[in-house]
Design a protein around this nucleic acid. Structure first.
Lengths: 346, 346
DNA sequence: CAAAATAATGTTAACGTACACGCACTAACA
DNA sequence: TGTTAGTGCGTGTACGTTAACATTATTTTG
């Protein structure tokens, strides 16, 4: 731990007043180039960084944070819990949170909310950028606002994004490949099932599927991969199951989002017959049920609560502590099975 | 976020000086009972808590932390990494860490070190209390010192323990039961293997085994549980394997500490024959190897790096931020299999 | 060349807390 | 009567930073 020089000491060494030093350090101008250089040199040599305590004491500012998340369901409610836990912990540090929630899964709504949030000029934003078109005017406004944004769950390109907090979607796909292929003994069919048309354009889903495919590129007995989008192919569940059965091979299913219970509902009766193994995402109630009854074998847990907590923590570190924040904070790929389901309260 | 009253404001409302308020709040005496009561009332009503920034600015203190961990091996080195990461992150907050390491697994050494540490009067201690007798004079000294201690990995009774950070050993044993019993189809033998005599008195190991047993109390087709301590029974590995084979039942093994690789080394040749399934602890290199080759099926990851990180974080919250810290911080029970081994960098 | 404009720098008062110090007063005791 | 100890208070200063304000030097302009 190197000692740190103070403004006062810099001023003394540079033979100027602390006001001048302050102007240099904050780049407020009105300083001659020579003085500026001298001050900067001494600051650097002295390992200067501003004293967090003095700074915040003086500023005595309440930080306004905006949190934009989808309407509560058992996945997103966890994000909120994490956020609230963090805010409660950092309570004494004068943060003031305003939560916005997306009731409808529509692009219009999220754009409206972003506009509102930007207008309110918070000091930081936590945003789950789902249903959000990268090139929409709202995103433009976000960029222009310069407000630091923490993206959770999904990623979009954003210059003022301070940090992305979530899983590495590609790696989670690769890992799913491993889970599905494990214990290979006979040829099987691998189904990748999506439901809505929108899923086809979702980057996170795409990355998960790419990861899966990447895994099988490196594997010897690669199975046949059958991708089906239910809406696109206008296929019913009974039809799907029929099709699976006629091929007479064990069925392994990858559902790259949280809707694996859609399938599980239909398949739990015939899972023996299908020789089913299924991997899905997220510990929502419906999925948990089918994990317990064995229709779903693995769920990949995205640790939503942790995501929410870390989002606020990142803003705290950036705004209050003036710290560098890691651009990407990948959370561990957490495999949940019937066996450890009851022990994961993270 | 409730607004918080300041000392100055309390002074004004109570019609006394700041100094008096200060004496009341710090219980320095020299205040009449009536004044004291009045000040306390107003402070409480005003939701007073000291301003972290002003406090630390004024105190301008370097905090000395002592970290006592066993000598580096691939498990404990992770603790150190976590500790160092946290110290680096909180660097600007003037913490100064002194690391002590236990070269030998002896009670004498750890007691000597504790004595040394207590004499140095650090502001906080991180301690892995293994090889440490609860009633030893060193522990007494620790108690008397009143220095806040963070216990990691294992727990001992200690009044000045600020927080325990580690796994819930009992629950991890229960979960192991689930992992071993999963997919029950035929009767099997369940071996609980320990190695040294010392293991018989280790509380963490005991709790894990109790958890396992607790699981099987609730299960229908409970297997025969065979507990073996290799040192106590003076048994060789070939002898053990011989014994397992003659019983002609599938073998499932629970190793309640990180030494599962001891067994794996001997058994990886005959694992088919034994119909072996094994659950162990900790991602040390030797274990990872046998996880990959299939001799060990599951490893329970204790997230040592996270433990180290959280330990420092807890001290930071207590010492610098004046926060309440949770007495027990249980880390999630993380199951590592061949499939997700490569993705767990936590 | 003086006045006005601008550039460069200095001064100072907070922010909320901790703590050393000092003042006024009382009571006890020599 | 003076000395001393103790009690109940108030005052002052410092911590490092920020930013408004004041002052001085330098250049520009009519």
């Amino acid at each position: 731990m190197k000692p740190r020089i103070t403004i006062k000491e810099i001023a003394k060494q540079a033979d100027v007043s602390i006001g001048t030093v302050d102007r240099v350090l904050h780049d407020r101008g009105r300083v001659s180039p020579e003085t500026k250089e001298r001050v900067l040199r001494i600051a650097k040599e002295g390992n200067y960084s501003s004293n967090v305590y003095a700074r915040n004491l003086k500023l005595n500012k309440t930080y306004h944070l905006a949190v934009i998340l989808p309407e509560k369901n058992s996945y997103w409610v966890k994000h909120r819990q994490g956020v609230e836990k963090a805010v409660a912990e950092y309570d004494f540090l004068q943060v003031d949170m305003h939560a916005y929630s997306l009731a409808v899964e529509s692009q219009t709504e999220i754009e409206g909310i972003i506009q509102e949030v930007v207008a309110a000029k918070p000091d930081g934003i936590v945003l789950a950028p789902i249903f959000l078109n990268e090139n929409s005017p709202a995103v433009e406004r976000l960029k222009k606002s310069q407000i630091p944004v923490i993206l959770v769950d999904s990623k979009i390109p954003l210059p003022n994004c301070l940090s992305y907090i979530g899983q590495d979607a590609f790696q989670s796909g690769r890992m799913s490949g491993g889970l599905l292929h494990e214990g290979y003994s006979e040829n099987y069919d691998l189904y990748v099932i999506t439901f809505q048309m929108a899923d086809l354009y979702n980057k996170t889903i795409a990355a998960r599927i790419e990861g899966l495919e990447n895994y099988f590129e490196e594997v010897n007995n690669s199975p046949q991969v059958i991708k089906i989008n239910m809406e696109q192919e206008a296929m019913g569940y009974s039809e799907l199951i029929e099709r699976m059965l006629t091929r007479k091979k064990p069925v392994r299913v990858f559902v790259p989002n949280s809707r694996s219970y859609f399938l599980a509902t239909e398949m739990n009766e015939v899972k023996q017959e299908l020789k089913l193994r299924m991997v899905g995402y997220d510990l929502i109630e419906e999925n948990k049920m089918y994990l317990e009854d064995g229709t779903i074998n693995y769920l990949i847990h995205q640790q939503p609560k942790q995501q929410g907590f870390k989002a606020i923590q990142a803003l705290h570190q950036h705004l209050l502590l003036n710290m560098e924040v890691e651009q990407q904070q990948f959370l561990p790929l957490d495999i949940i099975t019937k066996e450890n389901l009851m022990y994961c309260e993270h």
